[in-house]
Amino acid sequence: MKKGIMRPGHVQIRVLDMEAALKHYVDLLGLIETDRDESGRVYLKAWSEVDKFSVVLREADEPGCDFMAFKVVDEEALVQLEKDLVSFGCDITHIEAGELKDCGRRVQFTSASGHCFELYTDKKYTGKWGLNEVNPEAWPRNLTGMKAVRFDHCLFYGDALAETYDLFVNVLGFYLAEQVLDPDGNRIAQFLSLSTKAHDIAFIMHEEKGKFHHASFYLETWEDILRAADLISMEDVPIDIGPTRHGLTHGKTIYFFDPSGNRTEVFAGGDYNYPDHKPVTWLSDDLGKAIFYHDRVLNERFLSVLT
């Protein structure tokens, strides 16, 4: 059931070297720098997004993900969600407006899987980058690299998937779009959505809590994925796998690493859902095909290389 959470809003990623990270996220991926703050964080957005930023980079000793945030429709819904989170047993941290520049107050909490999430309602509306609000052209000129269209979702690795499912579905109003079941019927992967998208967030079972697998960015076509792969080779960027297709979501994809070892995905296409759709199920015995539809074999890296 809908609880007023609209969509993914931003992700804060830790990087070892900001200058190198910007080459990755701006020059290669094609995000646009929109601001910096006193603590040295850099704010980025993809061109089709309407708010000021969707990716925040923070220089730190350990790479990984600080938090992922979702945008809530209004203050009333946010207040209700806060109450529901507390009733569910979550510890809430209030982050005051302005701690992230031009972003309103944020409500922070941690899932049983060990990941930090945020809810907020306000962020400065700057409109799509490089386009007029009235009579907008098809796309802006002067985009760089892969010309990422939008920040789309994150995949996290951790344990306690059942408790995390309960939080996201029953408290936050996500629905289960797709899952992987082991032979005993336990869910070892859950792809959750707020929209018609194949996923807005995903979790895969892993013994260690709080691990970050990737942040994913949307491209329009398979040709764009191939062009992304060309750029990855031209820049000698470490690649994980691709270009290929996923079984899960059926998206066309390529995975590569930022200079701090955080994984990035760009993908195109994929399935859609409406409320009358049943969740799609894959079996863990066929996990190779579920993850990499063409090779039908998992690479060890996809399961074990995390930040």
Partner: peptide
């Protein structure tokens, strides 16, 4: 063993 090749994963 080869991992992220960016000093992040520790592999």
């Amino acid at each position: 063993p080869v991992g992220c090749k960016g000093g992040g994963c520790g592999v």
